[in-house]
Deep mutational scan, measured.
Amino acid sequence: MDVFMKGLSKAKEGVVAAAEKTKQGVAEAAGKTKEGVLYVGSKTKEGVVHGVATVAEKTKEQVTNVGGAVVTGVTAVAQKTVEGAGSIAAATGFVKKDQLGKNEEGAPQEGILEDMPVDPDNEAYEMPSEEGYQDYEPEA
């Protein structure tokens, strides 16, 4: 019985440690998101679009440190934060509304985080759909 109880105690310690790591990862992701939003706020009209992409990228980098179902929630929060940063930029006159959601080359930025393969159960990952990809044929 002692062996059984000791095993359960060790398992509990492992769960607590994993929860603490997840909590730490979420806190880091939130900190990076805040950094990115402050970065966007300090940019001029020309830099705002690039700044919004930076927020998304920093958040995406930190999301990889967070495991399990938390990833889905962090990704949703990050996307809403990026959308909010863009709205703030438009409201303050840093950028025109028609410039939001495009990178410096004018290509749409939507789907940055949505296409990231995420499995809350950590069982399997699927690649994003290939609808947006084109076949590449090298020139002879």
Rank of each mutant, 00 (worst) to 15 (best):
A11T: 05
G31D: 07
V63A: 05
A91C: 06
V15T: 01
K58R: 14
G7D: 00
V66E: 01
L8G: 00
K10T: 03
S42P: 01
D115A: 11
E20D: 09
A27E: 02
K97H: 14
S9H: 10
A89R: 14
Y39T: 12
K23Q: 14
V74M: 15
T33P: 00
Q79H: 15
K32T: 02
K60N: 01
A124P: 03
L8H: 00
S87D: 07
Y133R: 02
N122L: 03
V77N: 02
G93Y: 02
G51E: 01
E28W: 04
A90V: 02
A91S: 04
V70G: 02
G101V: 08
P138M: 07
P120D: 06
A78N: 01
K23E: 00
K34S: 01
Q62D: 01
T75M: 09
G14Y: 15
D121K: 10
T54D: 01
T44K: 01
T72C: 08
G51W: 15
V55F: 11
A124V: 14
E46V: 12
A91H: 13
K12I: 03
G93E: 04
V15K: 00
A29N: 01
D135A: 02
T81H: 08
L100W: 01
K102D: 05
G93F: 07
V48F: 13
E105N: 06
E28S: 11
K34N: 01
A53Q: 14
T33S: 07
E105S: 03
E123W: 10
K43E: 01
M5E: 00
I112R: 11
L38M: 14
V71P: 03
A29K: 05
A69N: 11
G36D: 02
K32E: 00
L113K: 07
F94G: 03
E130L: 10
D115C: 08
D135T: 12
K12S: 09
V66S: 03
E46F: 04
D2C: 03
D121M: 08
A29M: 08
E137F: 12
G47N: 10
G31E: 06
G67R: 14
E57L: 05
S42V: 11
S129T: 12
Q109Y: 14
G106I: 12
G41F: 11
G14V: 12
L8P: 00
F4D: 00
N122S: 08
A78Y: 13
G36A: 15
P138F: 13
G25V: 04
K80Q: 06
N103K: 10
A107G: 09
A11K: 00
E137V: 05
G106D: 07
E139R: 13
P138D: 10
A78C: 08
E131L: 07
A85C: 06
K102C: 13
A56Q: 05
V66N: 02
I112H: 12
N122T: 09
E57I: 10
K32F: 14
E20V: 03
E123T: 09
Q99P: 05
Y39M: 12
K97I: 15
K21M: 11
Y133H: 13
A29G: 02
M127E: 14
H50M: 14
V52N: 00
E126N: 12
T22K: 00
A140F: 05
M127H: 10
D119C: 12
G31C: 01
E28F: 08
I88W: 13
P120Y: 05
D98C: 08
A85G: 10
Y39G: 03
A90Q: 14
A56N: 02
A30T: 03
G25M: 14
V55A: 10
G106Q: 06
G101W: 04
G41Y: 15
V16H: 03
T22E: 00
H50G: 06
A107I: 10
Y125Q: 06
T22R: 01
K60G: 05
G14N: 05
S87E: 09
L8D: 00
V70I: 14
H50I: 02
V70D: 02
E13H: 03
D98M: 06
G132P: 03
G7P: 02
D2G: 00
E13A: 12
V55P: 01
E13W: 03
V70L: 14
A76F: 15
T33L: 04
A18W: 15
K102E: 15
D135G: 07
E13G: 04
P117A: 04
V95W: 12
E130W: 08
A11G: 03
E104G: 09
T22Y: 14
N103C: 08
E28V: 15
Y39V: 14
V49C: 05
K60W: 06
I88P: 11
E110L: 10
E13R: 11
A91G: 07
G31F: 05
V49Q: 06
D98L: 14
V95P: 09
V74H: 02
V49Y: 04
Q134S: 11
E123P: 15
A30M: 13
G106N: 04
K32R: 14
G31I: 03
P120C: 06
L100V: 12
A17G: 06
E123D: 11
E13Q: 04
G31A: 11
A107T: 08
E83G: 10
V63R: 05
K45S: 06
K96Q: 13
G73V: 12
G51P: 01
K6Q: 02
L38D: 01
T44V: 12
V118P: 14
V63Y: 05
K60Q: 13
S42T: 04
K23P: 00
G36C: 10
A124K: 14
V71D: 02
A30Y: 12
G25C: 04
V16Y: 11
K6W: 02
V63K: 01
E35S: 06
Y39F: 08
G36N: 12
V37K: 01
Y133W: 06
V118W: 04
Q24Y: 14
N65P: 02
V82K: 12
D135K: 04
K80R: 09
V77F: 10
T72K: 06
Q109W: 12
L113S: 08
V77P: 02
G51H: 15
